[in-house]
């Protein structure tokens, strides 16, 4: 059997995975191994596959992904901390036929933005919320977040989160799943290929629910924060599996059906 040279394989027609054209040229500003990069890709791939780039408007939060608009080659606004879903509400209300999504971290969505998150979902705004939960404030240097789990060390819970003093972590996804306005609520992760493929399907489903005008679709991605957790990427995803996932169970919490 003739020896197969790499050049025979590496040809345009043999391509089975390539970077979506909806990324801009700008290198991502995220730390090595950060799940944001994968989550960005999944959102952009969903948009690309649905062919809605000319009709999608994104809203970036304040947090590590505040610069999302520099990496996503779509029209985007950057919201004050916690207010992305309010901006998205405004956009969707004046442009009901556009696809509108927010991309937010846990501090943005579940701390300062709690009010907006709950009321946007409760109104059933026909938008998609992509929620990256890494249990910490990454951008500002690793402080305790509303989703920091018990005993988890951060720069503002240096001896671990003591729930009697600092309160309990907030499971926002479970909360919004109970609100009548939400139509599809799921929690996923992106640190293994299988989980990435499931997360991609969920994000795509969320946009399909928006297309079907069923109310608010909400996908949480439990992700790592290597710098904040002070771990290597490989250590971080191991820690995530052993500590975050038991607390933030993956799966679909709500789906009212697309028919």
């Amino acid at each position: 059997m003739a020896e197969i040279k790499l050049e025979d394989i590496i040809k345009e027609e043999n391509k089975v995975f390539s970077k979506t054209s909806l990324f801009t040229e700008k290198p991502l500003s995220y730390c090595p191994g950060c799940g944001h990069g994968v989550a960005h890709r999944l959102v952009l791939e969903a948009i690309e596959e649905m062919g809605i780039v000319e009709n999608v408007i994104g809203v970036a939060p304040v947090g590590c992904s505040v610069l999302a608009y520099e990496f996503m080659n779509i029209d985007m606004a950057e919201a004050p901390h916690g207010r992305a879903t309010a901006l998205a509400t405004g956009i969707k209300r004046v442009y009901p036929e556009k696809f509108v999504f927010t991309y937010q971290g846990d501090g943005d969505l579940a701390a300062i933005g709690t009010g907006e998150t709950i009321h946007t979902c409760n109104r059933g705004e026909n938008i998609t919320i992509v929620f990256i939960n890494n249990g910490i404030y990454g951008m500002t240097g690793g402080q305790m977040a509303p989703t920091t789990i018990p005993k988890m060390k951060t720069s503002t819970s240096p001896y671990g989160r003591q729930v009697d003093m600092m309160g309990h972590p907030l499971k926002m996804t479970e909360i919004v799943a109970q609100l009548p306005g939400t139509c599809f609520v799921a929690r996923h992760a992106v640190h293994t290929p299988a989980l990435v493929r499931k997360a991609k399907k969920a994000i795509r489903t969320a946009f399909e629910y928006q297309k079907a005008k069923k109310g608010t679709s909400f996908v949480e991605i439990v992700s790592n924060c290597n710098s904040g957790w002070k771990m290597t990427p490989i250590q971080a995803i191991k820690w995530l599996e052993e500590n975050m996932l038991p607390f933030y169970e993956l799966g679909t919490l709500k789906e009212i059906g697309l028919d």
Binding site: I4, D8, I9, I10, K11, N14, K15, V16, F17, S18, K19, T20, F23, P27, L28, Y30, P32, G33, C34, G35, H36, G37, V38, R41, V190, H191, T192, P193, V196, R197
Partner: peptide, 20 residues
């Protein structure tokens, strides 16, 4: 084998995969 696992988890989408 071109299974794309590596590309799926790559946070910076730097991996292009080919398969025959």
């Amino acid at each position: 084998t071109g299974c794309t696992n590596c590309a799926e988890v790559c946070p910076d989408t730097v991996i292009t995969v080919y398969r025959i």
